[in-house]
Simulated scan of single mutants.
Amino acid sequence: MNDKVIIQFLGSGDAFGSGGRLQTCILISGQTQFLIDCGASSMISINQYKVDPNSISTIFLSHLHGDHAGGIPFFVLDAQLNRKRTQPLTIAGPPGTSDWYPRIMEASFPGSSIVERKFPVTIKELEPGKADTVNGISVTPFPVSHGATLTSLALRIGFQGKLITYSGDTEWTDSLFAAAHEAALFIAEAYFFEKKVRNHMDYMTLKEHWHELNAQRIIFTHMNNDMLDKLRGVDIETASDGKIVEI
């Protein structure tokens, strides 16, 4: 299929709102709409950019940190109380998502995990290395390195004949070669410019590898102030809140 796929960065920031940016939330639109990650500020960006959340069938989560998944309770409660949603919602995330979901609901809004709603919420766990299909969207999760206490995934998504890869949060790991291979778009974390820290990626390390990735287009996101202050020295495309690209 050659239908256009539209990607909008509803949030391109890090956990701390560096540069005044909203937390990670990426909207993919075509014959259906879905999100990649849903950080705690996601309902702000959804409203700011006039997105209809009832049109979103699926939310893919790369990992369960608050700046990537903390918006789920707000999304679900908004769907119930404000949008009067009736369409099913699927949340697909790493192993542990099924146990995490009621905990995050209760931590945010006590009692909300047992409320009966007019739409079903289906939790699906993605097995690292195993290709899957969720609501007609193909996804292959690759294990990445973002701390030993949780499973973090890079997501290789096939949608309308196009491949989109999202690194999630990770330090450099060779699994990104397979995840990004021949992708129409590779969305990669570039947290620092050149500083090497555990669990996060820096621009200079990515620069060493990007010709080996064989991705058609690369966009950096999830940048902190160190990276944002050096954007004039960056010779590759970067995300910003509200940015729209087509593939």
Rank of each mutant, 00 (worst) to 15 (best):
M1N: 13
M1T: 14
M1P: 13
M1Y: 12
V5L: 11
L10W: 03
G11I: 05
G13Q: 01
G17I: 05
S18P: 06
G20V: 09
C25P: 09
S29Q: 14
Q33R: 13
Q33F: 01
F34M: 09
G39S: 07
S41M: 00
S42V: 05
S45F: 06
I46S: 01
I46H: 02
Y49C: 00
K50C: 03
D52E: 12
S55N: 14
T58G: 01
F60D: 05
L64P: 03
L64Q: 06
D67T: 11
G70N: 06
G71K: 04
P73T: 12
F74E: 15
V76A: 11
V76D: 05
L77W: 15
A79I: 08
A79G: 15
Q80H: 15
N82P: 07
N82E: 14
R83N: 09
T86V: 14
A92W: 04
P94E: 03
T97F: 02
S98L: 10
W100E: 02
I104D: 03
I104Y: 03
A107M: 13
A107H: 13
S113N: 11
V115H: 08
R117H: 10
K118G: 10
F119M: 00
V121Q: 02
V121P: 00
A131P: 15
G136V: 04
G136P: 01
A148C: 10
S152L: 06
L153Y: 02
L153R: 01
L155K: 06
L155V: 10
R156K: 15
R156L: 09
I157D: 02
K162I: 06
K162D: 04
L163T: 12
S167R: 08
G168E: 11
T173V: 15
S175E: 13
F177L: 14
F177Q: 12
E194F: 01
K195W: 00
K196T: 10
R198I: 00
N199W: 12
L206S: 06
L206H: 07
H209Y: 10
W210L: 10
E212P: 00
E212F: 06
A215F: 07
Q216K: 13
T221Q: 07
H222F: 10
N225C: 00
D226K: 07
L231F: 06
V234T: 08
V234L: 08
D235G: 00
I236A: 10
I236C: 09
T238C: 15
S240F: 13
S240L: 07
V245G: 04
E246H: 15
E246M: 14
